[in-house]
Design a binder for these strands. Sequence first.
DNA 1: AGCAATGTAAAACGATCATTTTACATCGTC
DNA 2: GACGATGTAAAATGATCGTTTTACATTGCT
Lengths: 175, 175
Amino acid sequence: MDTKTKLISAAEQLFDRHGFTATGMDKLTKAAGMSSRTLYKHAGSKTALITEVLKERHRRFQPHIEVGSVDALFDALEEWIRSESARGCLFLRAYGETGGDIPAITEAVLAHKARLYDKIQDIVAIETDGQAMPELAEQILILYEGATAAAIYRGPKAVVSAHKAASALLKQARS
Amino acid sequence: MDTKTKLISAAEQLFDRHGFTATGMDKLTKAAGMSSRTLYKHAGSKTALITEVLKERHRRFQPHIEVGSVDALFDALEEWIRSESARGCLFLRAYGETGGDIPAITEAVLAHKARLYDKIQDIVAIETDGQAMPELAEQILILYEGATAAAIYRGPKAVVSAHKAASALLKQARS
DNA sequence: AGCAATGTAAAACGATCATTTTACATCGTC
DNA sequence: GACGATGTAAAATGATCGTTTTACATTGCT
């Protein structure tokens, strides 16, 4: 694993576990096993590091939304939450901690969310034989977002409930 | 407005707008219009201040969940989001920023969420003539949570979509 | 052999962090 | 008219913040 990869993945872990602002550069250098000089040569600044972590997170998350059915979408979410993290959406947490005041971070967050909504629209179109149903897509997005949030305090079974609700809404929309 | 009230409401505003960790005590004293000595006499510590802000937030939010129907529940949420804040759930944000490591804060968050779920169970029972339907209640909780999160980037119309989804699930459960 | 790249360790930067302290003013109450 | 409560302003605490710098070691390429 090269230096940059090691840095990004250590940073992602610490940011997810302890928050962005509360994670200092000293803890980052220690966790990534490198000097602060090397860290700054690769990351440039803390803001840039956060942005890169979010972009890498999106890359890693992408396969979980690049699916062809609502069932697969929620199965993938359940797997992610069981194995990766049940601490809420890291993108929204970054947005909240920075108050939306740092353009690069805000852009990364909004791009991720736009991509998520677009993909859900595609999935809904597949499930309904090509019909565009933007409100149904938004409802499934909300169930997806809500499951991620509720899983923090209700565990992975929140995803199962959301999954069933999405299936019911879809079935109703088809009839 | 007495000193303590002024402090709590200034703190709530700053925490919501800029995050908990990023909000320093100097900005708190300036916004609340008091010396740091007075602030510490009333709050004790930053952790205690955050805890009190969350408890006060819960008190102020309570009327919005103490309702008798799913319609009223989502109408109240829509009103809250339009007038108060569309920055996501402040409780979950506090939990995320502290990593769940500060017991007093974690307790306040979990108590709020437990109260929310209990209330939704009551509402579902009213709507279904007394039947206990814990999974339907969880689904409505997820729509509620998801609307709060999605409203950050999709605006208040997310609450309208969630409202319709909740009504549909309820209608289906009744038949 | 020599040079550019990439790394380390460690100190220093000024700013800001949460918190405490020192010294003083303004009250309403007994 | 003294007193306790409640406030202010301002400085000091030691720690930690993000970032830069100085000085040196280890590589791989030409």
